[in-house]
Write a protein that binds this DNA or RNA. Structure first.
Lengths: 249, 249
DNA sequence: TCATTGGATTTGTACCAACATTTGGATGAT
DNA sequence: ATCATCCAAATGTTGGTACAAATCCAATGA
């Protein structure tokens, strides 16, 4: 158990207690003062150890409340469900909605529509030239009033300009339908998935605790002529999401 | 720009310089002493700021070398390629290998085969009872001698016992072929993907820098009777990997 | 020429002290 | 009973000091 430095030893000890289940989700860790006393180290050393656990996402700290073991029950996302939803006449139900409501939790969305110069990541996927604008539908999804994830869909201006701008509500409900009506049904998806630590803006918007990475999910939709017509960028707090794909041969 | 605390202000300022490209990958940040002097703050405050950037994965620190902006060029993983490889007569090339070698990088693997009681996560996917053992093939993959990711495949003992244990080399090369030969070809895959911060063991094994999350990729393979015959758990350092799926309707 | 040594620089660890901020819970008034 | 107020407890921030550890680089010596 003994590691090199004092604070690593202390962190290791506490971590063990958490992984072993001795300290379950929600359990209180000793206060900083207690740990100073019981381990005969300075407060700085205690805080170094606790910070390590915090950045690992194991514990959460707050004044007066103390340090507690974090809990996490992730929600499962099924990116393939959207494909089924594209079939003509399929229910318009969104995958995210059904997944959440099954657990009897209350959900809501905040939607904004803007015209912006998209980040390079998106621009290249939409095959836009440097500096070209696109329409973006920004969504912040909330579960029980708490921010859950974000989903920003970008559309090339020359495709959606006339219709959707004139009728924002159209694009706000069922972007896929609108694309279809415009003669650009999505026939193919390319999904890219990676993870990173959140930017401070994301931390703030999604109310992330320290030590929570985000999974970035980028879906590019192509029409029958293989022209990219939509890029959806979702930022998913890693402690609340898993993604599932099913493959058959 | 001004945020609440001193160290956040400093972190924010440096972060800005990085995101704006003013400090590109590999660029040196000022030393702690310089920052103390130029910003008129204590070393503690400087270190808090730098640590924040480090846990965000933006910079890397080392004695004497100083603090430098990190670079990352992720490799793309294509989980669907394994499906194609399962077709009879398909090339035995592993997706990971082709992806890496295309860039002229040298790669190697370290493989061990053990019989263990798998973690609950794996056990439930293999429908094992509490405490049941399984065979595991542990792989650590290296690129240019540097650890790149891990891939541990678990197999139910009652399926692989007789063959593979007697002939470890079999299972070490082309586990899929062996399963097929045993009458358990994989007909269906279920892939689960999530992310989290690494455990200290993983940090050590994969030589991760602070602020690097890992993506966990779990593939469960089912035979024609829908019996799970293999669970592959990959741990992918997030700064080095992206995952791509392609869907067609 | 080449290996070794040693100093200087830079980050890492550990300690102490003081005050700020947040908030759970008790207390008291309505 | 309910609500507002206040106190105390806990973490958060910032200042300081001292020494350790790593490592680049130049000086030294075989």
């Amino acid at each position: 158990m003994a590691r090199s430095t004092l604070y690593e030893q202390l962190a290791s000890e506490l971590r063990q207690a958490i992984y072993s289940g001795e300290l379950g989700p929600g359990a209180q860790l000793p206060t900083e003062s207690d740990l100073m006393y019981t381990h005969k180290v300075s407060r700085n050393t205690v805080r170094l150890a606790l910070r390590e656990l915090e950045t690992e996402g194991l514990v959460s700290r707050a004044p007066r409340r103390g340090t507690i073991v974090r809990d996490r029950r992730p929600l499962r996302m099924r990116p393939q469900d959207e494909l089924a939803g594209l079939a003509p006449g399929a229910p318009r139900r969104e995958a995210f909605l059904t997944a959440v409501e099954g657990e009897g939790r209350r959900l809501s969305q905040q939607i904004e529509v803007h015209i912006v110069v998209p980040p390079e990541e998106v621009a290249s996927r939409l095959r836009l030239n440097e500096g070209d604008s696109a329409m973006v539908r920004r969504r912040l999804r909330l579960v029980d009033g708490q921010p859950y994830n974000t989903a920003d869909s970008y559309f090339p201006l020359d495709i959606v300009r006339d219709s959707a701008i004139a009728h924002p509500p159209d694009i706000m409900q069922g972007a896929n339908r609108v694309l279809e009506a415009l003669g650009h049904p999505q026939k193919r998806f390319v999904d890219d998935i990676w993870a990173r630590m959140p930017t401070p803006e994301e931390s703030q918007r999604l109310q992330l605790e320290p030590g929570t990475p985000v999974v970035v999910f980028v879906r590019t939709g192509y029409d029958p002529h293989d022209v990219p017509v939509r890029v959806a960028v979702s930022v998913l707090p890693a402690d609340k999401h898993t993604i599932r794909y099913e493959l058959e041969r």
